[in-house]
Design a protein around this nucleic acid. Structure first.
Lengths: 230, 230
DNA sequence: CGACCAATTGAATGTGTTCAACCCGTGTGG
DNA sequence: CCACACGGGTTGAACACATTCAATTGGTCG
């Protein structure tokens, strides 16, 4: 199942590929593969040589680390329209994390060798890549700040806000669909599943009502205020 | 006080500049400035346009965020021989953190405009920069993992180990000098000063004896073991 | 129906924070 | 030269938040 024209367009709009001409992109895509992976499929393991980086076309992917004691630390989760592991191509020690499908989905898999070659020959592409990594860097800074200053409930609220596209700004309320199971959300937010469960209960006082994967936020601005410290 | 030959050599050995020829480096340095800053001097504020990036020649610099409630989150601390804020040049929103001198020191200040120009014209330099940002990215992943899985005492032990250069591998013990004041260390490790103080006391059981800024590690391998989970 | 797994809830525990008191070295002004 | 204030650091006690362990619910798949 190759790429649809619409998908190619969306890929071109990714920051990472904005430095490519339409021809350049087509050329790059000719050496890339589109593959479907089932749930729980391992894409790569920490330490593997970084032979590919990825673009999520559909489904969800988690990047995680396994600690010696078996505990899993989820570093990031990516969904449709996001690229990941592109930074690893400049890490001689290989991927710094392991990658696994969370839900069945399609991935664009780009060989790092071919991409690196083009980066070398196309300064605009190099700049795009730098910008893309700068964005990631900044998101890590955000994460560190949040992990260190927010309570569990605040982090959960923050997480839900990220998934709430406010279609009609005149409404203060909105319904959010939690995109993957709660264990994964908990891990991504640096807490235990029990803590997430309790945090969701606690958010009822903030006008958040959760039933399964469906979450209803009654007052978006109020929740946003709850997120901030002080 | 311009750069000494030795300093220029050390700058050239930085990953960030390894993509430059000796002439290229000289050329770049001709547009850079060396400045001395006193303790507590603000270098830039979060949101400021990223006009420069920096190399620490001597002293210490902290990068931090100020939360609305006035709390300060220290994101990173850099010392002699390290570059910082180079990633900000690709962030249209400006520096993602604020920067301040911790101790008096000398900085090499490189204008981003001039550097960006050279990145555009020199693919090797672009690659160096990508590699440099990849290293930073990985260090953030490490930090997230540590923050989420280690106790305060373990993080403190880990911190001291980073500063313990093991001169003679036949010795199991070593003396470490804490490089800056404990409030800053505490903040950098995501804990309160009181907690750091208690953690240092607790480490006595692991053969760590602290007096002021002088810390003695009696059994390096044992402390390393203590750092790991499980 | 029964087994299993995700999710929830309760109770006990643990780790770190908060608030307060105190020590100590340094620097300042009388 | 001494008295005193100040800031960094330490320590104690009470508290808050999250984890752990255990029990229970509810849904899904066999």
């Amino acid at each position: 199942m190759p790429l649809s024209a619409q998908e190619i367009e969306r890929i071109h709009e990714l920051p990472l590929f904005s430095g490519l001409s339409p021809d350049g992109l087509r050329d790059l895509l000719s050496v890339a593969a589109v593959r479907v992976h089932g749930k729980r499929k391992t894409l790569f393991l920490q330490g593997d040589p970084a032979t590919h980086f990825f673009v999520v076309l559909s489904g969800w992917v988690k990047l995680y680390r396994l600690r010696p004691d078996g505990a899993e630390v989820v570093v990031e989760i990516f969904g449709a329209g996001e690229s990941f592991a592109e930074g690893a191509m400049h890490m001689p020690e290989g991927y710094p994390v392991s990658g696994e499908m969370v839900e069945e989905g399609r991935l664009l898999e780009v060989p790092t060798a071919a991409f690196g070659e083009r980066v070398r020959q196309n300064p605009d592409l190099a700049i795009s890549m730098l910008a893309s990594m700068a964005v990631r860097l900044k998101s890590f800074v955000n994460r560190i700040e949040k992990a260190e200053t927010q309570t569990a409930a605040q982090r959960v609220a923050d997480f839900m806000l990220k998934f709430s596209r406010q279609d009609r700004p005149e409404d203060k309320g909105v319904v959010v669909r939690l995109p993957y199971d709660k264990q994964l959300i908990a891990n991504r937010l640096g807490m235990k599943p029990e803590t997430l469960s309790r945090a969701l209960s606690a958010l009822r006082k903030q006008g958040v009502h959760v039933d399964g994967a469906r979450a209803e936020i009654r007052d978006l601005p109020a929740l946003k205020r709850f997120t901030a410290p002080g």
